[in-house]
Design a binder for these strands. Structure first.
Lengths: 206, 206
DNA sequence: CGGTCGATGTATGCGCCGCGCACATGGTAG
DNA sequence: CTACCATGTGCGCGGCGCATACATCGACCG
């Protein structure tokens, strides 16, 4: 309810905070994200967000969880149903692109000494993992999906961070795409060798 | 000079701050690192460190740079002169181990939206890169050393972060070592395929 | 040997932060 | 209509980064 009225009790502060946080992250690359700035942005008092988020960490986790969902969406958009190594490479490139296009958000998602207890965050992470795993399994039915997924995710994730931190040349999207594509394709060549490794699945704390 | 006297002007606050910062990072896993806490630890007033570090970022960068040096040392210790894929895998395991043993320091080194202008930091990073490159080149003389180094560093770096964030099972050193070893060895099998890729060397901003 | 000077550390203050606590507001259930 | 309780406000505490003004003491020079 509460149609137009941006007046008395605000209506949906919870969502508004998330939105405000996202905007702040996009605007300046810093992953700082102060609760007070979010409140200001949402047009409420500094302490109002505490009605919806236990503490700063909770808000950050909510933002991160939304980031995971958007990342998954972005990956799907890169290729509807990846089935070949090249398709998979395209998805990998999309992953790194997401990191470079939303640096602050990406840092919030992965670079914070986050509290793994947050359920929303954990489940969103698992969703990503299973998405990757499904693609890998579809593309390489013979390989151990867990092991290969781990390798690919780690490789791509590492590339994303190294680019983000200026440790690798990220000057142009083309260069980045080449680097990522090459690296991933290189890993693919190794996939048969991995069919016996027994990497454990992700246990985001149990 | 100033032998025993911990009295008037302190002697070497610059080093003491670094030391204090390191201790704080090791003690609680948080990568927060407040300048005031460092000052307190060093037994000086809150603003004293500013005589030696322009701002918080400068101190953080100094700590990070020392971290890079220690990491390089730790890698060397893992294997004096790696020459085989297995040797290289051992170095990779050491890299991840370093991250898990010094989580806060590792985050400071890589997960901060750091200012890449800091010269100490940049040069320490380059040193790491060249170290990795040299090993890779010695182990795989036929592969494009830049491309393969990039892939390996990214893979290992990604594994480190994924473990650090609880996205992969890091419950026991053995499990971690297996995962890292498998992933790296898998990449090795692909090295011949990489001889034509033209990955650019690290240009930590130019 | 005494005075000056510059490097180093201190004191104080500003604005921002996370967050606890008492209080105001207004939609809704009885 | 009224009492209730979710939601939002105001205020205050301690901690933070950092600028500015001031104190201290070793070194250097006459």
């Amino acid at each position: 309810m509460a149609r137009e009225g941006a007046s008395y009790h605000h209506g949906d502060l919870r969502a508004a905070c998330l939105q405000a946080a996202r905007e702040l992250l996009e605007e300046d690359g810093s992953a700082a994200l102060s609760l007070r700035a979010v409140a200001r942005r949402a047009g409420v008092s500094a302490t109002a967000p505490y009605r919806h988020y236990a503490d700063r960490d909770a808000l950050v986790s909510a933002v991160a969880a939304q980031g995971y969902r958007e990342l998954a969406e972005h990956l799907s958009a890169a290729h509807p149903s990846p089935a070949t190594p090249d398709d998979l490479a395209a998805v990998a490139v999309a992953y790194v692109r997401f990191a470079l296009d939303h640096p602050a958000l990406f840092r919030v998602m992965f670079a914070e000494p986050c509290d793994p207890n947050n359920e929303e965050r954990v489940s969103a992470t698992i969703a990503i993992w299973e998405y990757v795993r499904a693609i890998v399994h579809g593309t390489f039915p013979d390989a151990d999906p867990d092991a290969l997924s781990t390798s690919i995710w780690a490789l791509v994730h590492g590339l994303a961070f190294l680019h983000l931190d200026g440790k690798l040349d990220a000057s142009s999207p083309g260069v980045v795409a080449d680097q990522v594509g090459d690296a991933v394709r290189a890993l693919f060549a190794a996939s048969p060798a991995m069919s016996r490794t027994a990497t454990t699945p992700p246990t985001p704390e149990s």
